[in-house]
Amino acid sequence: MDIKGFLKTQRLPLAYADTAQKWFIPLCERLLEHQKGAKKTFIVGINGSQGSGKSTLTAFIAAYLESVHNKNVVALSIDDFYFDKAHRGELSSHVHPLLATRGVPGTHDISLALDTINALQSAQSVAVPRFNKATDNPFPTAQWPLVDGPADVVILEGWCVGIKPQIPSQLNAPVNSLEETEDPLGIWRNFVNTELASTYQTLFSLIDYQVMLKAPSFDCVFNWRLEQEDKLRAATEGESTGIMSESEIARFIQHYQRLTEHALETLPDSCDTVFTLDENRAITS
């Protein structure tokens, strides 16, 4: 694998090569052994809070398996299946105003995700959805990349990938000021939990191997998310209508807090591999 080229493309420090050698190449080799025995498209789920490094790990796994083992790998982000602003606007009018903001279960087109993965398991050309966070809408379908199936490996990464719903009693008390002031009756969080319990579990049941990048706590998410937004601002070169300020990020991540903390507490027990991170996203175990 051209690790130097990968580091340059991903804008990563040289230290990432050491992390990859110690932790991620062994993971790739484990995935390869599982894929060889699967006799079908092997689906990998990657969970992690915002800014934990999910997208970079996904890119590394894909690059390694493609270049070293000649596998056909397709990387998907659950973010690429967000509904457009118009659809979320309808949800905000008919269900709860907080659903105008992308992110939580109920704001993704899970039917499209299921159809996409199903198509990737067959011998056909598949248009893979892509979402433009700078405009807060999907890219036009004409701009979706075409990939040829069947895929040997499909990677589905996302902050809520693999999470189970909470039990009803856990929804009663708000976890932050957003829930306390904007969802005092619990309508929004109950809707999100109901959605998570439904078709999201159908999607997650397709996962053959689950990986987690486990943050030390939700407190790290603000700084990690701020770094993401700075990178997005630099990458979009002025197309910044959907890029947030620090105060907007502080409010935005409160939408994710409940399920992120739920994942940190419950998901590791059901994962095949868990990488425990410190506050600087270095893997400690």
Score class of each variant (00 low, 15 high):
Asp84Ala: 00
Ala100Trp: 06
Pro105Ser: 06
Phe60Leu: 08
Lys85Gln: 06
Pro26Ala: 13
Thr41Tyr: 09
Ile117Met: 14
Lys85Trp: 04
Arg102Lys: 10
Leu76Ile: 13
Ala119Gly: 03
Phe24Cys: 03
Asn70Val: 08
Gln35Gly: 12
Leu57Phe: 12
Leu14Asp: 15
Gln10Pro: 02
Asp18Leu: 10
Val68Lys: 14
Asn47Thr: 03
Ser52His: 12
His94Trp: 14
Tyr64Trp: 11
Gly53Lys: 06
Ile61Asp: 06
Ile43Ala: 09
Asn72Pro: 02
Ile110Gln: 00
Pro26Thr: 13
Leu14Arg: 09
Gly89Glu: 01
Tyr64Met: 03
Leu76Trp: 10
Gly53Asn: 03
Ala15Cys: 01
Leu112His: 03
Leu112Asp: 04
Thr19Ala: 10
Trp23Lys: 01
Tyr16Glu: 13
Lys85Cys: 01
Gly45Thr: 13
Pro13Ile: 09
Gln50Ala: 06
Thr19Tyr: 11
Pro26Ile: 11
Ser93Leu: 15
Asn118Cys: 00
Gln35Cys: 15
Leu14Trp: 09
His69Gly: 08
Val104Gln: 14
Ala63Tyr: 15
Val95Cys: 03
Phe42Gly: 05
Asp84His: 02
Ile78Phe: 02
Arg30Phe: 12
Val74Asn: 10
Pro97Val: 04
Ala62Val: 12
Ala20Met: 05
Arg11Tyr: 15
Ala63Gln: 13
Lys39Gln: 15
Val73Met: 06
Ser52Lys: 04
Phe42Thr: 06
Ser111Ile: 10
Leu112Ala: 12
Ser49Tyr: 08
Ser67Ala: 11
Ala119Arg: 09
Ser52Gln: 01
Lys36Ile: 07
Gly51Gln: 13
Leu12Cys: 06
Gly37Met: 01
Tyr82Met: 05
Leu65Ile: 07
Thr9Gln: 06
Phe83Pro: 01
His108Phe: 08
Lys22Asp: 15
His94Glu: 14
Val68Phe: 11
Thr101Leu: 12
Glu33His: 09
Leu65Glu: 07
Ile25Gln: 07
Asn72Ser: 11
Ala62Gln: 14
Ile78His: 01
Leu65Thr: 03
Leu27Pro: 10
Leu112Arg: 00
Leu27Gly: 10
Cys28Asn: 05
Arg11Gly: 14
Leu91Ile: 10
Asn47Gly: 09
Trp23Gln: 01
Leu31Lys: 01
Ala62Trp: 03
Phe24Ser: 08
Ala119Met: 12
Lys71Thr: 08
Ala17Cys: 02
Asp115Lys: 07
Gly103Lys: 05
Phe42Asn: 03
Gly51Tyr: 14
Ile25Pro: 01
His108Gly: 02
Ala59Asn: 15
Leu27Glu: 08
Ala15Phe: 02
His69Tyr: 14
Val73Asp: 05
Ile78Gly: 01
Ala119Leu: 12
Phe81Leu: 08
Ile61Met: 15
Ala17Gln: 13
Thr107Phe: 10
Phe60Thr: 00
Gln10Lys: 12
Glu90Tyr: 08
Arg88Ile: 00
Ala38Gln: 10
Leu27His: 13
Thr116Asn: 05
Ala62Lys: 13
Ala75Val: 13
Thr56Lys: 12
Glu29Lys: 00
Ala17Ser: 14
Leu99Pro: 02
Thr41His: 09
Leu32Gln: 13
Asp109Pro: 04
